[in-house]
Design a protein around this nucleic acid. Sequence first.
DNA 1: TTGGATAAACAACAACTGTTGTAAAATTTA
DNA 2: TAAATTTTACAACAGTTGTTGTTTATCCAA
Lengths: 192, 192
Amino acid sequence: MLPTEEKLDPRVKRTRGLILQSFGDLLAEKSFDAISVQDVAEKAQINRATFYAHFEDKYALLDHSIRQGFMQEIENRMLNACHYTPDNLRTLIITVCEFLAQLGTDCAQSQRQFEPLVEKQVKLQVYELLTLWLSKMNVNISTEIPATVAAWAIYGLASYWSHSKKRPALEKFVDQALPLVSVNLEQFAQVA
Amino acid sequence: MLPTEEKLDPRVKRTRGLILQSFGDLLAEKSFDAISVQDVAEKAQINRATFYAHFEDKYALLDHSIRQGFMQEIENRMLNACHYTPDNLRTLIITVCEFLAQLGTDCAQSQRQFEPLVEKQVKLQVYELLTLWLSKMNVNISTEIPATVAAWAIYGLASYWSHSKKRPALEKFVDQALPLVSVNLEQFAQVA
DNA sequence: TTGGATAAACAACAACTGTTGTAAAATTTA
DNA sequence: TAAATTTTACAACAGTTGTTGTTTATCCAA
């Protein structure tokens, strides 16, 4: 993965910042599928070959961008410093729902490549967080399968909610959704 | 979607058959990401512009191919003529696991575009099948959320199993997996 | 301060994509 | 059977991608 930012050559830092900023600006203007590497390089005012020195292709750029953006949401809510409780699980479900709503993912044809990549990164991070939480619970049970099921269920629910035409209130939706996820994690719940 | 095959111009039928056959042959030779529309057209011995008359791009071709392939597996097991029971659910989970294993999906870099598309189509079909099953159960509960959670959980489990380095025996794995899915569908189980 | 190392710019290349208008071939319809 | 319609082939076009070797600019370390 990328080296820590503290040890970066300032030119690398500046160029990556330009790329990510331009990419974000372009995403606000048009759909991901309509954006070309050429577009990003031009907006960032760098050479196209320089883009390829930093990112393999535009999909790698999106992966990085989404991962960073979702990580920020997790850190803002200090979810990465938590352990498993139903309340934390509830907050996590809300976070994913809000993140997808804010991205404006929809089924538009022009978004065909965008959503699967968002999904992959967010699911992975949710899985990693759940695994971190569950492994703190001092329960001698493998976390892999429960964390997998919970992560996929959370994303599936969030995707369903963000795609709903008449979107129910998020709090109410999460009231319905939470039991379907927590039921498989009860064995990790701390005895109070 | 495509009109029924009975009413097709024979040239369309022939051309589509050539495209799908050639695509299947190419998938046996190299990864999806390495296959170009040019490759498929050459192997099918059709003009590249004719390819575009039938499929929007190679992703649409893959969507179609996967949907058809998985549909065949469902029909072979007559799962589309069933209603919800834990045994049928078990068979469905096994079907998805075997389908993914047979496709040889892995995390190879060269498969980056393949797996998300497979996932999307298979999840959708699993969701549609579950919705069909649950709606036959004469239970006055909305099927949408339970079917969503179950479909995503099934695919997540199958993906996890097919990616496992030391893959456990499928029967044993499904023994572990089934309760995590069925727990959310118990309200639809028929009172015997 | 200077030399070495690294990052970025540049031009060029081959390949592929997606599209278009025209022509030929094949099928359908009357 | 012949005309109409549809499908496919074709060539051409503009655009983008991914890569490469060379040059220039910038940073780091001694």
